[in-house]
Write a protein that binds this DNA or RNA. Sequence first.
DNA 1: TAGGGCACTTAACCTAGATTAAGAAATAAC
DNA 2: GTTATTTCTTAATCTAGGTTAAGTGCCCTA
Lengths: 191, 191
Amino acid sequence: MSLILQNIAKHIALTTAEQELFLSKIEVHHFDAKTILLHSGEVCKYSYFVNSGILRSFNINDNIVEHVLNFACAGYWIGDMYSLITQKPGNLFIEVLEDAELALLSKENQEILYTEIPKLERFFRILTENSLVVNQERLMDNLSLSAEERFEKFCSKYPTLIQKVPQKQIASYIGVTPEFFSKMKSKILHR
Amino acid sequence: MSLILQNIAKHIALTTAEQELFLSKIEVHHFDAKTILLHSGEVCKYSYFVNSGILRSFNINDNIVEHVLNFACAGYWIGDMYSLITQKPGNLFIEVLEDAELALLSKENQEILYTEIPKLERFFRILTENSLVVNQERLMDNLSLSAEERFEKFCSKYPTLIQKVPQKQIASYIGVTPEFFSKMKSKILHR
DNA sequence: TAGGGCACTTAACCTAGATTAAGAAATAAC
DNA sequence: GTTATTTCTTAATCTAGGTTAAGTGCCCTA
């Protein structure tokens, strides 16, 4: 069974017919690393489910500094939630960091699926709740932990990412400059 | 019509019977300022909808420093989302800051309502999506804006709160110490 | 009406992390 | 295989915001 159906099955039970309907509403595509799926200023039309590869969402401040909002690897969804909801231009970029196979669910198809398989409201509610919890924890961590502690948490939470994404992006995710991150890293190693 | 039904009506349409069913599943109570509705370490049993008054959720770090996660005034929901979802002990406190009338929706009744009025899945999905968007923006703000800029945003977003909640709690919400907040405030005034 | 706490202010000093800059190492491009 | 570009490191210097501490005003409640 496809990863996305496994993902759904963790929270709700779909009949075979519903599964087929769901699959008929998504498009699976391959994207090369460095592809930008969404630019700041565009309206986000899709939720992206990651079958394989790694993506990130980020914004750019004053045309200079990047800030990573999220990483997504296999089994995760990613998108610009603000832009998806409002269908107004967002300020996020979504980029492929490592060659990826993605399942694209368009906003329109998502709405169609909600009416045809109301159970999916439940699925996406649960998904969103979980994201919210993770986000709230990260927010509190940013308010209360040191950069080093945030890095430790990142390591235990996303052990696979550390080898795979450029460390300046991890620095950005935990909220420090690449230079400070490098200093911190060598400080940790030398003890 | 009660505030909570108006709130729901913004996103989904309930029949009169459904409205009555919904109301039968919530308890409306009055709480005095300073009441702690939820302590860190407890399992959160209710979502709280604010009819009037002001609440906040916060955690306490190393038994010393408070960090405000959210304020809630009339028309807002508040709870410990992590604990509500998992039904495990959370680390948030929920406190009444200003005498409040609250509608309490227990986790069990919420689940019952989901089965009896499936449309409510949609309502709470939308609610959670909106919270997530707000949270993500706050996270990015904490990564990219100065304390002063965060304060300005807070002022334009929650103008009513500034007069009503102790400023050390606003300081905590935007992520600075009360001392620095005070310094910053007088700097802003003197120009 | 006193007095014990909070909330707020002010000021001196301190530090985690930013900035700037320049070189080394790794990737990518040709 | 060489050059160009990006990433990472190191180090000096700087600053936003933290810490400590002492003092002021203000509810409270007795």
